[in-house]
Amino acid sequence: MTTFKTFLALAAIALAAGCTNEGGDRGDKTVDAGARGVGPLQDLQAGIWVDPNGCDHWIIDDGVEGYLSQRLDRSGRPVCSGIAPPNTATGNYKRGQDIRDRF
């Protein structure tokens, strides 16, 4: 039983060690640190996902991790543009295509 408790304690410490913000940009939500390397999310091309209510959300998928945020107008209200049917994603958002690649 002591070996089992020791194992559980070590596992808990190992899991908690990943919850720190030391050693880089782990806490910076404006930077993509995924498979493509580290770079600002502003350089990635976003698509639009339409939720079941018909409102738009920005979506970026770099192949390993994905990003989603609600699309808002200047006053902070949700944008519901009708660009696509509900539960549909549009645009070239897969693999986090760098917008600089288009120029």
Score class of each variant (00 low, 15 high):
residue 4 F to L: 06
residue 91 G to K: 04
residue 25 D to M: 03
residue 34 G to A: 12
residue 24 G to A: 15
residue 94 K to R: 13
residue 84 A to E: 02
residue 63 G to D: 15
residue 66 G to F: 02
residue 32 D to S: 10
residue 43 D to I: 09
residue 67 Y to V: 02
residue 42 Q to H: 03
residue 55 C to T: 02
residue 71 R to T: 04
residue 59 I to E: 04
residue 51 D to A: 09
residue 23 G to P: 06
residue 64 V to W: 11
residue 7 F to K: 00
residue 63 G to R: 12
residue 48 I to T: 13
residue 49 W to H: 12
residue 55 C to Q: 06
residue 66 G to E: 03
residue 66 G to T: 07
residue 45 Q to L: 09
residue 28 D to S: 09
residue 73 D to M: 06
residue 4 F to V: 03
residue 43 D to T: 12
residue 88 T to H: 06
residue 36 R to P: 03
residue 82 G to M: 09
residue 60 I to A: 05
residue 88 T to C: 07
residue 97 Q to F: 04
residue 2 T to H: 10
residue 88 T to M: 07
residue 6 T to M: 00
residue 81 S to Q: 01
residue 95 R to E: 14
residue 78 P to K: 04
residue 55 C to E: 13
residue 39 G to P: 00
residue 37 G to T: 11
residue 103 F to G: 01
residue 80 C to N: 02
residue 80 C to K: 00
residue 10 L to I: 14
residue 102 R to S: 01
residue 10 L to C: 10
residue 6 T to F: 07
residue 27 G to H: 07
residue 21 N to E: 15
residue 60 I to R: 15
residue 19 C to A: 13
residue 34 G to L: 06
residue 76 G to A: 07
residue 9 A to S: 07
residue 26 R to A: 09
residue 3 T to S: 11
residue 26 R to F: 12
residue 83 I to V: 08
residue 1 M to P: 11
residue 4 F to M: 03
residue 11 A to S: 10
residue 69 S to K: 10
residue 27 G to E: 08
residue 35 A to W: 02
residue 80 C to H: 06
residue 72 L to I: 11
residue 86 P to W: 05
residue 40 P to S: 10
residue 35 A to D: 10
residue 72 L to W: 11
residue 98 D to G: 00
residue 8 L to E: 01
residue 60 I to V: 14
residue 65 E to F: 02
residue 28 D to G: 10
residue 53 N to H: 12
residue 23 G to K: 06
residue 16 A to K: 00
residue 12 A to P: 02
residue 89 A to D: 01
residue 41 L to R: 13
residue 1 M to Q: 09
residue 45 Q to W: 08
residue 56 D to I: 04
residue 2 T to A: 14
residue 11 A to K: 01
residue 37 G to E: 09
residue 102 R to C: 00
residue 9 A to Y: 03
residue 76 G to E: 00
residue 49 W to N: 01
residue 56 D to P: 03
residue 8 L to T: 04
residue 64 V to T: 08
residue 98 D to S: 14
residue 70 Q to K: 14
residue 69 S to P: 01
residue 55 C to S: 04
residue 23 G to L: 11
residue 53 N to M: 08
residue 1 M to T: 12
residue 53 N to Q: 12
residue 46 A to Y: 15
residue 8 L to H: 02
residue 102 R to G: 00
residue 52 P to T: 06
residue 62 D to E: 15
residue 79 V to I: 14
residue 30 T to H: 08
residue 15 L to H: 13
